[in-house]
């Protein structure tokens, strides 16, 4: 297991959002976590990233407990996140946004090469490299957000709602990108409301409901699962 959550509890103030979540991600996988608004998906990713306190339970990465380590240490260990709503630095240029993604690695260290690689994959970002991040379109921002997270050269990439607010055609393109990133060797934990898309790129999936994992299976099985169909696939 690359990442393992064991009975993780987390929340805000008196409200407990995660009530003992256990999931696992194998190296090389794409794992999707499905769930409605407020089920605790983002909280889960933020707890992995060290932003939210893990009140109980363990988070193992590469066999080592990483719960409640500072966020920058978690990035250093090889987990980076593209957060919900993209959160591009609006008044940093596209190139500077990418540089910030590589902050933990320092300057040098092949930073220029990685930026070039991103620009080869996304020519539009190269075109806009000196434009401010806030001026990009939603789809462009999502590409930038994912690229920025990849700049840390993570072993595990956390993606929070990458399709949110994007036009259907752009969504398809983003999911192709996700598949491609995985093919090149990065493990991905994906959180999505767009269950259909998520299950089509993922190998396995979990269903999170009000802070608890209620279902776990291969993506193919989940797509045909009656309960999942009813609740998340609009069928």
């Amino acid at each position: 297991m690359l990442l393992q959550l064991e009975e993780v509890h987390a929340g805000y103030g008196a409200i407990e959002v995660l009530k003992g979540v256990s999931i696992g991600v194998e190296e090389g996988e794409i794992v999707a976590v499905l769930g409605a608004n407020g089920a605790g998906k983002s909280t889960m990713l933020m707890t992995i990233s060290g932003i939210n306190r893990c009140r109980q339970g363990r988070i193992l990465f590469d066999g080592e407990a990483i719960q409640n380590r500072p966020p920058h240490e978690i990035v250093q260990r090889g987990i980076s996140q593209s957060p919900e709503g993209r959160r591009i630095f609006p008044r940093l240029s596209v190139r500077e946004n990418l540089e910030m993604g590589a902050f933990q690695r320092g300057h040098g260290n092949g930073l220029g090469d990685d930026v070039e690689r991103v620009f080869t994959a996304f020519p539009i970002l190269k075109e806009r490299q000196s434009q401010l991040g806030g001026t990009l379109s939603g789809g462009e921002q999502q590409m930038l957000a994912i690229s920025r997270a990849l700049m840390a050269r993570p072993k595990l990439l956390l993606l929070d709602e990458p399709s949110l607010g994007l036009a259907p055609m752009v969504v398809t393109r983003i999911f192709n990108i996700i598949r491609e990133i995985n093919r090149q060797g990065t493990t991905i934990l994906l959180v999505e409301q767009n269950a259909n898309m998520a299950l089509h790129v993922a190998h396995r999936g979990y269903v999170l409901e009000t802070g608890r994992i209620v279902l776990e299976d291969t993506a193919a099985n989940l797509i045909s699962n009656e309960q999942v169909k009813r609740s998340y696939l609009g069928g």
């Binding site: 929340g11 805000y12 407990e16 003992g20």
Partner: peptide
């Protein structure tokens, strides 16, 4: 003091 001790486990 928002950081209350967490509620008892379910």
């Amino acid at each position: 003091h928002p950081q209350e001790p967490h509620p008892p486990p379910p």
